[in-house]
Simulated scan of single mutants.
Amino acid sequence: MTLAFPNPSRSFDSARNAIRFTGYDGMFEVPFLIEIAALGNSASELRMSDALEAKCLTAFDTLRSSIYAAASKAYADGRRAPYILTSADIR
């Protein structure tokens, strides 16, 4: 089976400074995190906690195809779950 992303939902995880999303390999759920720094937010933006969640989720939506491609590559490379994507994975 190949990794698919049929569910477009994602959530902000303030404890991990990341966005959570899920892929599926057949019937198996595959958890992913992408660090908010990988979404192109500057250090000053990261300090603005009022709008941080909305900015990060919007950035995720904008970069969704690149994020899914990086997630598929990480999964194919055999990393361990939860798969944590960084800016090096996206660029």
Score class of each variant (00 low, 15 high):
residue 40 G to D: 08
residue 51 A to K: 12
residue 52 L to M: 06
residue 24 Y to M: 10
residue 60 F to P: 09
residue 30 V to D: 02
residue 80 R to Q: 11
residue 84 I to T: 15
residue 65 S to K: 06
residue 79 R to Q: 09
residue 43 A to I: 07
residue 28 F to T: 08
residue 35 E to R: 15
residue 83 Y to G: 06
residue 67 I to G: 02
residue 33 L to S: 11
residue 85 L to C: 11
residue 41 N to G: 12
residue 83 Y to N: 02
residue 66 S to K: 14
residue 47 R to M: 08
residue 68 Y to R: 14
residue 45 E to A: 09
residue 31 P to I: 09
residue 59 A to S: 11
residue 23 G to C: 04
residue 67 I to D: 11
residue 62 T to M: 10
residue 78 G to L: 04
residue 56 C to E: 13
residue 43 A to C: 02
residue 21 F to W: 12
residue 22 T to I: 11
residue 23 G to H: 11
residue 67 I to W: 04
residue 65 S to A: 14
residue 45 E to P: 00
residue 68 Y to Q: 15
residue 76 A to E: 09
residue 45 E to W: 00
residue 36 I to M: 14
residue 75 Y to K: 05
residue 81 A to W: 02
residue 31 P to R: 08
residue 51 A to W: 06
residue 59 A to P: 00
residue 45 E to M: 04
residue 79 R to W: 07
residue 66 S to N: 14
residue 31 P to L: 11
residue 76 A to D: 12
residue 37 A to R: 14
residue 82 P to E: 06
residue 42 S to D: 15
residue 57 L to A: 05
residue 46 L to P: 00
residue 84 I to Q: 07
residue 26 G to Y: 04
residue 34 I to C: 09
residue 65 S to Q: 13
residue 37 A to V: 11
residue 32 F to C: 02
residue 31 P to M: 05
residue 29 E to K: 13
residue 62 T to I: 13
residue 29 E to F: 00
residue 75 Y to P: 02
residue 40 G to L: 09
residue 37 A to P: 01
residue 56 C to N: 14
residue 23 G to P: 09
residue 81 A to F: 07
residue 53 E to S: 12
residue 74 A to Y: 01
residue 23 G to D: 05
residue 84 I to R: 15
residue 73 K to Q: 15
residue 84 I to P: 06
residue 45 E to N: 01
residue 81 A to Q: 10
residue 44 S to K: 11
residue 34 I to Q: 10
residue 61 D to G: 14
residue 81 A to D: 05
residue 64 R to A: 10
residue 44 S to E: 13
residue 84 I to V: 15
residue 52 L to Q: 00
residue 81 A to I: 09
residue 56 C to S: 15
residue 83 Y to R: 08
residue 70 A to T: 08
residue 63 L to I: 01
residue 65 S to M: 01
residue 40 G to A: 05
residue 73 K to G: 10
residue 70 A to N: 07
residue 18 A to L: 07
residue 56 C to M: 09
residue 75 Y to C: 03
residue 29 E to C: 05
residue 76 A to Y: 02
residue 31 P to C: 03
residue 30 V to T: 06
residue 20 R to T: 13
residue 55 K to N: 10
residue 70 A to Q: 08
residue 55 K to P: 00
residue 62 T to F: 07
residue 59 A to L: 13
residue 60 F to S: 07
residue 63 L to H: 12
residue 50 D to L: 14
residue 38 A to R: 10
residue 65 S to H: 02
residue 25 D to H: 03
residue 25 D to T: 01
residue 58 T to P: 00
residue 21 F to Y: 13
residue 19 I to N: 13
residue 54 A to I: 05
residue 78 G to C: 05
residue 74 A to P: 01
residue 22 T to P: 09
residue 19 I to E: 05
residue 68 Y to M: 14
residue 27 M to K: 07
residue 67 I to L: 10
residue 55 K to L: 12
residue 23 G to F: 04
residue 27 M to R: 02
residue 19 I to K: 06
residue 35 E to W: 04
residue 26 G to D: 04
residue 57 L to Y: 01
residue 27 M to E: 05
residue 56 C to D: 09
residue 29 E to P: 08
residue 38 A to I: 08
